[in-house]
Structures are given as C-alpha cells and as structure tokens.
Design a protein around this nucleic acid. Sequence first.
DNA 1: TTGACTCAACATCCTTTGCTACAA
DNA 2: TTGTAGGTTTCCATGTTGAGTCA
Length: 443
Amino acid sequence: MVSLKYFKGLLLSTHYAPSFKWSEDFKAYVAPAYNYASALEYFRKGEIEVDDNVMDPLPFPIVKDNIKLREYQERALRLWLSRKRGVLVLPTGAGKTVIGIKALSTLKVATLIVVPTIELLHQWADKIEELLDASPGIIGGGEDRLSGITVITYDSAYIKVEQLGNKFPFVIFDEVHHLPSIGYINIAELMASPFRMGLTATPEREDGRHVLLEDRVGPVLVRLHPSQLSGKYLAEFKTKRLYVELTPKEKEKYEELRGKFISYLRKKGFRMSSPRDFQRLIYLAGRDKDARDALLAWHESMKISINSESKLEKLKEILKEYLGHKIIVFTRDVDMAYKVSREFLIPAVTYLTPKDERKEILSKFRTGDYKVIVASNVFDEGVDVPDASVGIVLGGYGTSRQMMQRLGRILRKSEGKVATLVEIVSKGTSDHNLSRRRSSATK
DNA sequence: TTGACTCAACATCCTTTGCTACAA
DNA sequence: TTGTAGGTTTCCATGTTGAGTCA
C-alpha cells in the first residue's frame, strides 16, 4: 500500500513513482504536485493499492445550467472532456469563457479559474453569475473570497498556490500563454488538480516556453482561426497593408542609426539569427559601452520607422475614407498615441490614462459619442473594448498574438458588417520586418 | 474605502554579412 | 573541402499590470 499526500505544492509518497525523488527532509519520495494524475496512473498499472490523501476539495456549489453551446464550442468541449486535459485555441470573441463554464458545470467539481487581469476577474465572475446563477469566490484586486468556484489572478494564484493546490480538482487557465513564464509556471506545477484546461487565442510565445504547456496543462486539442468563424459567428473581415516612405529627414536619420547598429555587429562578428543572439547583445550592453550605444541606436531607428510622419498623413486619408465608422487606431508606444490624439483631436488610452478616464472614454466609444479612439498596447488583452468596425495599425510588435488580439477588436458580428484592419507600414525599414512577422495572424 | 504611490513581474527585443575554429 | 557552430545569466529600454503600503 502506497501512502500519497499533499504538502505545500508537493506530493509525498511512501513509494517511488516516475518524477519522484527521495527526500531526506521529508523521509518520503517527493514530486511537484502536478504529477498527481500520472502517479495514480502508475500505481494503478502496477496494481499497487493507494491510500490517497492528496485532494481536499472544496464543496461544489449548487448551480443552474442553461448553457447552450454553439457547434464548434460543443465540439471543443467534447474533445476536452474525452481527456480532461488540454488547451483550446479559439479567437477573441469565440466564447472561450462559456466553454470553460460549461466544462465546470459538467464536471461538478471545485474549480479554480486563473486570469491575468482584474478586469477578466470580474468578467468571469459576472458570466458565472449569469450562466450558473451562482456567486463565485474572487481572489485578487483587493478581494479574498474562497468558494467551490473561484476566480483568481495569476499574481494571487502565484502567492497562494501552496495553500490552494489541493482544493480544486479542476483548474482553468485563461489566456494560458501567460502560464509558462518563469514565475507563473509554479502555479501549474504546485497544483495537484488532475483536470486542466487552457484557453487562449495564441499559445505561442516569443521565448518558446509554450512547449511547457503540453506537460503542465495538456496538448492543444482545438485550434480555430478567426477566418473559420467569420461570417457565421464573427464578422467578415478584410485586411489591408498600406506602405509609406519615410520623409527624407527621417530616412537620413534612420540610415545613420541603422548604420551604427550594423557596423557594431560587423565589427564584433555578431550573427543575428535568433532571439538568443539579440539576448546576447542585450547582455553585452550591460557591460560594454559600444554594445549599449549600438542597442540605443537600434531602439531609436526602430522608433523612427514605426512612428514616421508619413503615417500620420496616411492616417488622415484613411480617417476621411472611413468617416462615420467606429475606428480604433493602434500605436506601439505612448508618444505616438498622444501625438495622434493631439493632431486629430481623438481621445487616447494608454497605461498612463487614469482608470476613471479610461472607463469614460470606453463608455463614450460604446455609445458612439466618440467615433475614433487611439490606444497604445493597452487593448491587447483582457479589456472589454466596445466593438469597432475599422482597426488601423500604426505600429506594434512583431507578434501574431498582438495582431490577433487587435483583429479581435473589430470582429464582433452585426448585421451586414464587414470589418477592416488596415496596417500602415514604413517601406524598407525594420517596421516592414515587424509587419511581415506578425502578418501570419491574419491569414 | 479610495487614491497615490512604489515595487515586482512580465513582454517585447532578430533576418546584417560572412570571421574563425573545428568537425564531418 | 564543406558545413556549421561559435561564447552567456539576469537585462540596453519601454510598456503594462497586479499587489502592497500608507495617508
């Protein structure tokens, strides 16, 4: 007979199992708690009886369930239920929350829902109340109420995982691409929960750590692109890329800075073929002045190419062309957002905008008092942005995630709507590279 | 309870040309 | 001769958010 128990994110076993190591301190075989399901499986196969004291689940509340799923949601849920582990990749607006809630009301076990922002904390809580007629626990954003269905931020989960790790047989990671980061991965590893669901529109991370998801949450079970839902469930959309030239003055400065950067690379025989190489340069910049100067030149050249004056000219034309439409203009940095705001008398939202002001701007955009708003990267995730029909990308990262999120902002379906995402790109510059890299999102 | 503040964590950050040493 | 890898640990700058503290 094996005795198996939970202690602060760890499993303690009297017998060996894969991933377990002997610990003198505990006088037991020890492994991170996420090995719980596989350890049980191992003992079962070996026909070894287990005295299982791992889970100490909270009671599941009484809930109503009138949830009707769309056919693709149904299919995704069915697939997930067949193994009760895995990641569902669905575009923004496809109703990931509803699938998660249906899953927990089907399993009827205590569930922890982990989300990245306080805004999502409340969105999930509201949706649970609406669909299940139950009031969930909330941990984070100043609240600390534990219940059989609890929504928690990644930050709070990170802090409390040792206490909560065996209270929830089911854990849902919303925006699961956050999970593999160095700190947050502990949440997945120190929880014993055998049932796990990850939700995201884009699991891939620039640092490549998304490969950890398969082991900690499960494999990608479903992957739907906006184009597969457009027409029926999401608005139809088209994308356009418009090119502009840098002004002669910008071009001169750009070439100069770029030259500085490249001549440093050449001088040092630096090859830039992967993010690791760039990381190396950053590391060097911490101790070598030339490297630092080269990196600063690179930063500045980037800024020039992304925030060219010509883009503002082009923006003026596009705003005229789509006069009367609801438009969101996206920039890469705060400076450009405020520049656009000043020149076109458009309200701007950035991370510097006070909460109340942001709320007011979004509410006026919702009602149509504001037809156009400009935002830096703040709408990339977890913000309930009112629907628009035109998105104009002045600048951004080279990630398909950001592009996908921005596209998602204009895809809410309404009668006869065709959404348009316009990208304005500085030709022959690093801005063009960024645009190419992120473009896979819209195909 | 709120608001202002600080702090910590996370995310992005690449595509130039062709050196040098070593392995196949 | 040809092809390929080469050396590294907390991190140039900026943007964004959540938690915690204190008035």
